[in-house]
Design a protein around this nucleic acid. Structure first.
Lengths: 337, 337
DNA sequence: TTGTAAGCGTTATCAT
DNA sequence: ATGATAACGCTTACAA
């Protein structure tokens, strides 16, 4: 059972291997008749070209690397799906590569990936893009890459992000519209960019509504359930407690809901709770969570499409893209007060 | 900036390329002195061998394929992690390959993967192993593979599974121990094996306790939230309703909790709810869910280790492995009644 | 212990 | 429009 090679096809079709190669790669200058004959033989022999040989001979890897660090599984899942589907459409594979960017050796491994020609391009998920020395080096090596929601958005490097600030603004405005005057805010990890953007959206909505910003309604969390529970617990202990709590993500919002229940109060009657991201969790808790949808899948898709343009040397009409968020209203914020 | 090749290293180290190759592959019969010199040069030149060339020359792909169909995110995430970590330790990559086993063309793509020499072995996640024609073909082609929780466990093909029946038995017994006499059971998708195993564990515990099996306490769901909600709603409508509901997975249990709340009752005071899998969701809902932990990560790890043994032609001491589940007690089942 | 030469199965070059 | 032949960068006989 030795594998069928391009030579077998060539012999059977009575053409040269180069002609078979031309058919394989859809090159021009092949007589329709010849093409048809070769294709028939390919079918007949169930021939599939060896990827390894293609890679070696062409110098391309036909795979794109997805660099990930500390991503939540919901985030990762959607990014991976978006990248994979787009890559597949281009005949590419995806190599998922976790990388602890705080360890120099791990950074080196990403560079090895490139030097080994294992990838033709890279996609960075946050906060992996914070490895600025790596990014710099890749830029110098002229390695194609794209970034999802990077911290740095001032350099002329490409990225795809979402409207974090606008999303938080929309949510806060919605809560204000429901009649809330005192809205708690649970911050996410300070090392990341999104929590700051979201906070500034909250802040702006508060300002525009003239309801006065209160420092003691801001609490810090780490995006995980437990910290959301703690944050909400402490907010409920503030004298004249907030009537609504807006959390940096859904998981903390779930924690906040638990905190409210544990304190013997109800959601949304006593306290309204809102999240961010619209993860599956949002629909799976009681009461279902009002939140902001972040179009992760779509972002990954666009980022990958752009990456292919860069790989192919095409011009990018938009180096920087922002895909809008969307307010998703559910029961956890209740009705007009 | 043309890439550094094995020839550059050989020249600089004043040895033949074969010697460099020997050092690279940790082969025997290299003088310590020579090895050291070659390694120095490798460091100095930051040389990394081309994977494509290695693959082509050796006929190995250094990649294992992970075949997935319809997996939940939590499941997939853990499997992928287990497979990747083990693969990485062996210097292997992982190629995630979704495959709708109901479509012949997709089955063909898996075979192409093999014929293209893109993978040295495969891991199947349920219910992808149900593609029995594919499995048969792979066996005939002598392609190494391993299966996670397969439906068929009678053939001498390798697999790694968990103790679904025992887990469900443990949970049911625990509920009975709390004083429950009428325990609803929400079934999962009938096409899969696990729901049946879990049901038979439930059934056995009921029998052993002599509390009488009641057909109308069994409802069918599809493992998703909404169906759990519906299933629980219908169970609560049964006259002399169950005091506990055991769901085939956590997501449906979350739905059941929502159903109880929506009907104005409380969990666990009025109805106890239990799940299966111990997904993150179990801790993120209120009240936190009593469930059975399924060691997905560990199973994937073992399955991959075994796959490498098969690839290397080593003997498998255990062709079939079952890793135990574990009862996780939280508030959703409350205390003794 | 080390080296020479012949593949591996493609793509690329340059004729024709 | 097609073909002969040389890469691609490594591993694998087989020598030495």
């Amino acid at each position: 059972m030795s594998p069928i090679t391009i030579r077998d096809v060539a012999k059977r079709a009575e053409v040269s291997i180069k002609t078979v190669s031309r058919v394989l790669n859809q090159e021009a200058y092949v007589k329709e008749e010849t093409r048809a004959k070769v294709e028939d033989v390919i079918q007949e022999l169930r021939y599939v070209a060896s990827l390894s040989a293609r890679r070696l001979a062409s110098g391309q890897s036909f795979t794109i690397g997805l660099i990930v660090y500390n991503a939540s599984w919901h985030y990762l899942h959607n990014v991976q799906k978006g990248v994979m589907e787009t890559a597949q459409a281009h005949g590419y594979n995806v190599l998922l590569h976790p990388c602890d960017i705080t360890i120099p050796q791990e950074i080196q491994k990403v560079l090895d990936l490139v030097h080994q020609r294992q990838v033709d391009g890279l996609i960075f998920t946050p906060p992996a893009d914070n490895a600025s020395a790596l990014i710099e080096e890749l830029k110098n090596l002229d390695v194609p890459f794209n970034r999802l929601s990077p911290t740095d958005r001032k350099s002329p490097l490409p990225y795809v992000a979402t409207t974090d600030k606008q999303g938080a603004f929309d949510m806060t405005k919605y809560l204000i519209g429901l009649g809330h005057q005192r809205i708690g805010f649970v911050y996410g990890p300070k090392e990341q960019r999104a929590p700051h953007d979201r906070f500034s959206g909250y802040r702006q909505a508060i300002s525009e509504a003239n309801i006065g910003f209160e420092e003691n309604l801001i609490v810090y969390g780490d995006d995980h359930f437990q910290s959301g529970l703690q944050a909400a617990t402490s907010l409920l202990a503030v004298n004249s407690r907030p009537s609504a709590i807006f959390c940096n993500n859904d998981e903390m919002a779930a924690g906040a809901i638990s905190a409210v229940f544990e304190s013997g109060m109800r959601v949304p009657e006593d306290v309204a709770i809102a999240g961010f991201d619209n993860t599956p969790l949002a629909k799976q808790i009681y009461p279902p969570l009002t939140t902001i949808e972040q179009p992760i899948f779509q972002m990954a898709e666009v980022a990958t499409k752009h990456l292919f343009k860069i790989i192919n040397g095409d011009d990018l009409e938009n180096l920087h893209v922002e895909i809008p968020t969307k307010l998703i209203i559910r029961k956890s914020t209740g009705f007009q007060r």
